[in-house]
Design a protein around this nucleic acid. Sequence first.
DNA 1: ATCATTTCCTTAACATGTTAAGTATTGTAA
DNA 2: TTACAATACTTAACATGTTAAGGAAATGAT
Lengths: 145, 145
Amino acid sequence: MSSTLPSTSRSLPIALIRAREGVMAPIREMLSETGITEQQWRVLRVLSEHGLLDTTTLAERSSLLFPSLTRIAASMRDKGLITQTRDEIDRRRQLIEITAAGQKIIDDRTSQSIQIVDDIKTKLGTDNYETLLDLLGLLDLNSND
Amino acid sequence: MSSTLPSTSRSLPIALIRAREGVMAPIREMLSETGITEQQWRVLRVLSEHGLLDTTTLAERSSLLFPSLTRIAASMRDKGLITQTRDEIDRRRQLIEITAAGQKIIDDRTSQSIQIVDDIKTKLGTDNYETLLDLLGLLDLNSND
DNA sequence: ATCATTTCCTTAACATGTTAAGTATTGTAA
DNA sequence: TTACAATACTTAACATGTTAAGGAAATGAT
């Protein structure tokens, strides 16, 4: 198909990193006053949306590797943002739930978050925004091609 | 524009992370035998394309933060993949260049890299691939909107 | 010339990414 | 029931991401 590598300025991995920087910059700014990281925000969002989850499912839905989530969950438990309990039926499993304090971090920033998403939609155009999500979905390993 | 946050399954930051996973998986597999990381590969690619570069320009073109590049460059120098020299005119600057050993790592894997890119183009379709790069470019902070 | 500012880079500290090895519990099959 | 395999995590070790502080050289204003 091609006979040469694309210029690094037209490289998909680099484009993905830079796009992520652009998207995350305002979110990070929003979170700077909370003392939580972008990853912890993602965990809170997933827990808020799905309720009680085991660690494996939480890792998958928040796109975090297991060892990262182990550390992040410990840190979030210490901050009182989540609770961890053992599944009494399958004692290997750990069940994680958001606390009121964790939910409040989300609730207090919902309108600001919506504004950030809307700014991106405006920048791209809504059609392009949806197209972009669809194309990115095609690259996802764990999707059904 | 919107009144609710998107579901986390339709979140742009998460979609970007997952797409990156999908794109990088075969590249990581390719690099596993070399002992260099995905970031070091990026540095080699940029240096190979642009020749001698100062650290600031190299960081920008390889999309690495300065402190990361400081560590990565030290490690790559120790491995003999790059050389670091001081700019004699502006002695604050450091000039970095790829070595023959570094270039060989690229040369030995060029066809395999092209194949990986082609696989992605095939998966998306070439038009979609170009569209995706263009849309991602719109999200880049440092681009001229 | 001198001092403050800016630029270019390094170091530090902590969080996460990544791979591999380890532990405890459950499932399975002889 | 016992031994082997699989599952659900945890820990370890090292690399990178991220923010803040620091150091050295150049620039600019006085």
